[in-house]
């Protein structure tokens, strides 16, 4: 019988510190068993339970794209006891993951249309997955706009890729930081303000991911620009345990973030008072 509680084994291939403080690290994991690799099929927006035996599990969005073969990427912010343990990992270590869990960004539905991706801080993980996926299938999509902000330049993740994306002419990348610092040549200001300036076309699909406060203030901006609720998607985070709709922990209203989400449209969320 299939057992959704059992982690599969993964090997740590590469670890990259995303910021000078090393509180954000990206882990590239490879599959230890071929069978697991062949059966693991996911879409941008899905997540995994990262399992540190002896410490417990924490859910993380998959930051790699399904188009990047054989590797799963997770970016982990060090906050609690499990993430602390993950940060101690070294290349070659074996860890467990369970997944892919949850639903995904409706990239099929987005086909043929413009897409605007709005992200804040280290919540850019699954947005990266989606962006890489769309760039790999570039001709399926219209104009792609990315608005990505962080408190300071250090806290922007995937810095090398941001440079690459910035050079592309089939992608509009708007980077912003809260307050100006020396050497910064991009936008300054909060994500909602920059979104207003960029003023994406309300006929596009919007995907917003970031701290709750950012989402709270970006939403009215999009509404003002004319975006309908069902054109805006986000990904929610809640404390989770089982990830398969049993343990009851990630409930928001009658929905469970782990199986009904984590991706929701605002059309779905507006009737759930607990969502934000």
């Amino acid at each position: 019988m299939c057992n959704g509680y059992l982690p599969i084994q993964m090997k740590v291939e590469k670890i990259l510190a995303e910021n000078p403080d090393k509180t954000l690290k990206t882990f590239d994991l490879s599959f230890v068993n071929e069978k697991d690799r062949d059966e693991f099929s996911y879409m941008p927006g899905q997540f995994c339970e990262f399992s540190m035996l002896g410490k417990g599990e924490s859910p993380f969005g998959i930051a790699s794209s399904p188009t990047e073969k054989d590797i799963l990427k997770f970016t982990v912010n060090r906050t609690g006891s499990v993430t602390k343990e993950i940060h101690y990992l070294q290349p070659g270590d074996i860890v467990g993951i369970r997944g892919p869990l949850g639903n995904w960004y409706p990239v099929e539905k987005f086909k043929g249309a413009d897409v605007v991706i709005i992200g804040g801080g280290f919540a850019f993980t699954t947005l990266r997955s989606m962006l890489v996926y769309m760039l790999e299938h570039r001709s399926d999509y219209g104009m792609i706009t990315v608005i990505y902000g962080a408190r300071n330049p250090d806290l922007l993740i995937y810095k090398d890729e941001l440079k690459e994306w910035d050079k592309r002419d089939d992608l509009f990348l708007h980077l912003t930081i809260d307050k100006s610092v020396e050497g910064w040549t991009k936008h300054c200001g909060f994500v909602p303000t920059i979104t207003k300036e960029v003023a994406p076309d309300p006929n596009s699909w919007a995907v917003v991911c970031g701290p709750p406060i950012m989402i709270k203030f970006t939403l009215p901006v999009l509404k003002e620009l004319g975006f309908a609720d069902d054109k805006i998607y986000t990904s929610l985070e809640r404390r989770m345990k089982c990830g398969i709709g049993k343990c009851g922990r990630c409930g928001i209203g009658s929905k469970y973030v782990c199986i009904d989400g984590p991706v929701f449209s605002f059309e779905e969320l507006k009737n759930i008072p607990e969502a934000f």
């Binding site: 509680y5 035996l53 410490k55 345990k241 089982c242 049993k246 343990c247």
Partner: peptide, 8 residues
Amino acid sequence: CHCFDVSD
């Protein structure tokens, strides 16, 4: 009631 925690 069936909510549960998972602990190592």
